[in-house]
Computed example of a mutant assay.
Amino acid sequence: MQNILIVDDDTHILQLVRIQLEKEGFHVSEAKDGTEALTILKKTACDLAIVDVMMPFMNGFQLTKEIRKQYDIPIILLTAKGQIEDKEEGFLAGTDDYLVKPFEPRELSFRIHALLRRYQQETDTHIIRLGHTEINLDSYEVKLGDKTLLLPLKEFELLALLATYPQHVFTRAQLIEKIWGMDYEGEERTVDVHIKRLRKRFSSQTAAFSIKTVRGVGYRLETAE
């Protein structure tokens, strides 16, 4: 189930959008400001963000820039403003689409589906770049500069998952389910073994990323700023 993040300080808009998207089978996460939204993104893998421009503490343009720094997900800006200058600022901040209030929930839905399709097509041939490290999801290769590595399948899938959602904390149970499948009957310790192997492979070869242990929870991949 795809997860949509809605960020708006207007509870009416939150409710309106949530009802529409839940009817279509999406899971919805809600935030009333930018700070809350960034906290959610650290804990929850989201497939798309709907961001209101006029919010306290951090406006939608600022939040869009922050999301763009860390996550590769489509963003739709919502605003009561329709001036060309505001649209320009939104696209310069990194938004993918722009919808002026008031809007029809179904129009928002059309735009969401279009963006998700487009991003999925891009993901089908996606290369994740972490500094000079490239993770090719099509060829299952990892390139470190001029060197090409072919990792064991589970190691590659584990690295690719963590790299797709940098800074996101995955529990061992979540990693088992996503990489080994829900029918896996082995021990969660296998995750620790594979993480140890990945660290051994890359820690001496690149400073572009590192895999951190979150004590009592699981793991996250951190990128070098």
Rank of each mutant, 00 (worst) to 15 (best):
E66D: 11
L161P: 01
N136Y: 01
L150W: 08
L77N: 01
G186L: 13
F103N: 06
Q121N: 14
H126D: 13
L198M: 06
E157R: 09
N136H: 08
F61H: 11
L115K: 06
F61E: 06
L149G: 01
G60K: 03
P105D: 00
F91I: 03
K81W: 00
L92C: 05
L153W: 13
E88T: 13
Y119C: 10
A163I: 01
T79F: 06
E122Y: 14
A163V: 02
L149N: 02
L92A: 13
Q121Y: 11
T123R: 15
I195S: 00
S139M: 06
E155M: 12
V142I: 09
T95E: 02
K154I: 10
D97H: 14
F103S: 06
I73A: 04
G131H: 07
L99N: 02
K154F: 14
R106G: 13
L77H: 02
T79D: 11
K178Q: 14
I135Q: 02
P74C: 00
G181R: 14
H194F: 09
D183G: 14
R189T: 15
H126N: 13
N136R: 02
T123G: 03
Y165C: 03
P74L: 04
Y71Q: 11
E107R: 07
L78T: 03
E66V: 09
Y98W: 07
L158P: 01
P74K: 04
